[in-house]
């Protein structure tokens, strides 16, 4: 019995140490974000500041750059992307899963191919076309390339295939029109899959740097990662207290959401494994 107890204690100790190492950057980030400038440069490792100045660094960070604006851009862009992704993908996935029509194999082949191709591959031509059409540096440029998500189609198709045809037959016999089948049966059943996908999509696009870096020039259109880049390279570059406060502000929304709904987040993000 005592051996089992010792093994459990050892296990906890190893886990605790590992967790401490993984969390250390977060702890330091928060710690330095509330330290006054002179304490950052003293070369001491205290986690808490000796003189607490409140959230001065946060106020200054928000003064230096409109971080709230970046967050808002992030919300707008992620919401728009997600909206169109589901709007386009769900009907397509339903047709692929449940309807037989000419060209279905071809369409599914296109979806599988598109699943392999990330934005980094398609970026150059899309950039050139947007540039020629004068569409760069806009919400449209941030959102449009992601509206048709092969991954969403693939996921929803898998999901719809698990819904038995008999469920739809039963609804028909119960007197539902095709429209009420969609509204009363399909939409509610899609919700769990859509939630998982939504988390995956929002996390991916909130954190994406590559594409916004290419298409955005105007500071007021900065997404959160672009905001961090601008913050770091600008006048705040060596004001580390403010920089850490800025990093906290940018990371906080997703981290908070994650802590509130951990299971759903882990479920949603690990969906990405299918995609790579």
């Amino acid at each position: 019995m005592s051996r089992g107890w010792a093994a459990a204690a050892l296990r906890l100790a190893v886990l605790g140490l590992a967790a401490a190492i993984f969390l250390l950057p977060f702890v330091w980030m928060v710690s330095f974000s509330i330290k006054p400038a002179d304490e950052i440069f003293t070369g001491r490792l205290d986690l808490l500041p000796s003189s607490f100045e409140g959230f001065l660094n946060y106020a200054r960070a928000l003064e230096l750059r409109p971080l709230h604006r970046y967050l808002l851009n992030g919300v707008v862009v992620c919401a728009a992307i997600l909206f169109f992704q589901i709007l386009f993908a769900a009907p397509c996935a339903y047709a692929l899963a449940k309807l037989r029509f000419r060209g279905r194999e071809l369409v599914f082949g296109l979806v599988l191919f598109a699943l392999l191709v990330p934005i980094q591959v398609t970026a150059i031509p899309i950039f050139l076309v947007f540039s020629t059409a004068g569409l760069l540096d806009s919400y449209f440029a941030l959102v449009a390339p992601f509206t048709a998500s092969a991954f969403a189609i693939f996921l929803f198709r898998q999901f719809y295939r698990t819904i038995p045809d008999d469920l739809i037959h039963a609804a028909r016999i119960d007197g539902c029109s095709e429209l009420s089948i969609v509204w009363r049966i399909i939409v509610p059943l899609t919700l769990p899959a859509a939630t998982a996908f939504a988390i995956f999509s929002v996390v991916a696009h909130w954190n994406d740097l590559f594409w916004p870096l290419i298409v955005i020039r105007s500071p007021e259109l900065n997404t959160p990662p672009l905001g961090v880049m601008a913050f770091r390279s600008g006048e705040a570059g060596d004001r580390y207290g403010e920089l850490m406060a800025g990093a906290v502000i940018i990371t906080a929304p997703l981290v908070a959401a994650f802590l509130l709904a951990q299971r759903k987040f882990i479920e949603g993000i690990s969906l990405g494994a299918v995609k790579g």
């Binding site: 886990l15 967790a19 993984f22 969390l23 959160p224 770091r232 580390y240 940018i250 994650f258 951990q262």
Partner: peptide, 29 residues
């Protein structure tokens, strides 16, 4: 783990959720 499974899982998963660019700036510092 005999206890705290959810906590540890979240602790190790936290870097996955965090905005990479922001954490890169933190690491740089």
């Amino acid at each position: 783990a005999p206890a705290g499974r959810t906590f540890f899982r979240s602790a190790f998963f936290l870097p996955v959720v965090s905005t990479t660019v922001a954490m890169a700036v933190v690491w740089e510092f």
